[in-house]
Design a binder for these strands. Structure first.
Length: 332
DNA sequence: ATAATTTGACCAAG
DNA sequence: CTTGGTCAAATTAT
């Protein structure tokens, strides 16, 4: 805990708080389980995620094996070497020659699309992203897509992500997140879940997602560099860096990212489905993919090999990995 | 009309 | 030099 950065500490607190909150939800869930069997399990998953993460943070200097047979399909394991030594770090945002380059907090996860699951399901965690670039990566078969939070201009949200399709397994997408969400979408997540009793449609939708999610959930932590650091180049006025617990949330307002290559059309996703799932909100995106395997990468600036992991269920404070499929060509 | 994406150019880092 | 990340104009979608 000593060499823990402020950011990590906050994350830790958030995790624990979240875990507590989730537990409460779970309790409520157990007492009044109308019809959804999914929710309790989901909650368990999330709780586990929270606690695992918290533990990892606390033990960031020791080698902690988080291997632990999770409830159903969840498996967490670590791996140490990134798939390829790509130098994915260059933020041109820091141009100051004096300042040594700060690495944005960065964590990655891999998402596998399982053939056989509904490919029309938008799998999104509630953030809306805007693509701002695409690049062919050396050695990679598929180009990498660059996205940033679409609320960037409005709220100065710095979050970015990269989506890279796996070379061999086109069903796998590596998503690297960097930066933290400072937009108010960042915190809305968890709480909608418990009160989503009115909207049946979206609830069902959520369940579907949960189902596909549970199918083969796999989380692997990997080491990356995550730096505790702040936001270098944004008018501090815009970036409310303060990130508290997810106690406040505003109704999701954004949502767009349409697109459906040659696959099924976005047809079904025209409704505003803003209920949450997995601790995230689901948006009318039409991205042909499913989640089946996720693994995450994260590490602290310390030199410990492996460190944290996160879930797409809003595992970490305000980070909500989002997944957006970018329609890169299938050709190199 | 506006908003999002595409795509080549540009730039920094290695 | 090469490579990855971002910008921004042009294009496409809404």
């Amino acid at each position: 805990m000593e060499n823990m950065g402020e950011w990590e500490q906050r994350s830790l607190i958030n995790e624990l708080t979240q875990g507590r909150e989730l537990t409460r939800q779970l309790q409520a869930c157990l007492h009044a389980p109308p019809s959804s069997n999914q929710t309790p399990e989901l909650l368990v998953l999330k709780i586990q995620a929270s606690y695992e993460k918290a533990l990892l943070m606390l033990n960031s200097n020791t080698s902690l094996s988080i291997d632990q047979p999770q409830s159903s399909d969840l498996a967490i394991r670590m791996s140490e070497s990134p798939p390829s030594p790509r130098s994915e770090d260059s933020d041109r945002d820091f141009k100051e020659p004096d300042k040594k380059r700060k690495a944005l907090p960065r964590w990655a996860q891999q998402v596998r699309v399982t053939p056989g699951t509904a490919l029309e399901e938008p799998l999104d965690d509630g953030f809306s992203w805007r693509k701002y670039g695409q690049k062919d990566i050396l050695g990679a078969k598929y180009p990498r897509g660059y996205y940033r939070c679409s609320l960037r201009n409005v709220q100065g949200c710095l979050a970015r992500k990269q989506v890279q399709r796996s070379d061999e397994d086109p069903t796998v997408f590596e998503i690297t997140y960097r930066g933290t969400h400072t937009c108010n979408l960042a915190s809305r997540v968890m709480h909608q879940e418990q009160q989503g009793s009115s909207n049946q449609q979206s609830q069902k939708h959520s369940q579907d997602l949960v189902l596909s999610f549970r199918r083969e959930l796999e989380v692997i932590t990997r080491d990356l560099d995550i730096g505790d650091q702040t936001f270098p180049n944004y008018p501090s006025s815009m970036a409310n860096i303060k990130v508290e617990n997810n106690l406040v949330f505003s109704p999701p307002v954004v949502g767009n990212n349409h697109f459906a290559e040659n696959l099924s059309s976005p047809a079904t996703s025209s409704r505003m489905n803003s209920d949450c799932l997995l601790g995230s909100v689901d948006f009318p995106n039409s991205e042909p993919q499913q989640l089946a395997g996720i693994y995450q990468t994260a590490a602290s600036s310390t030199n410990s090999p492996t460190v944290g992991f996160d879930f797409p269920f809003g595992g970490a404070d305000q980070f909500h990995p989002n997944f957006t499929f970018d329609n890169n060509g299938f050709f190199s």
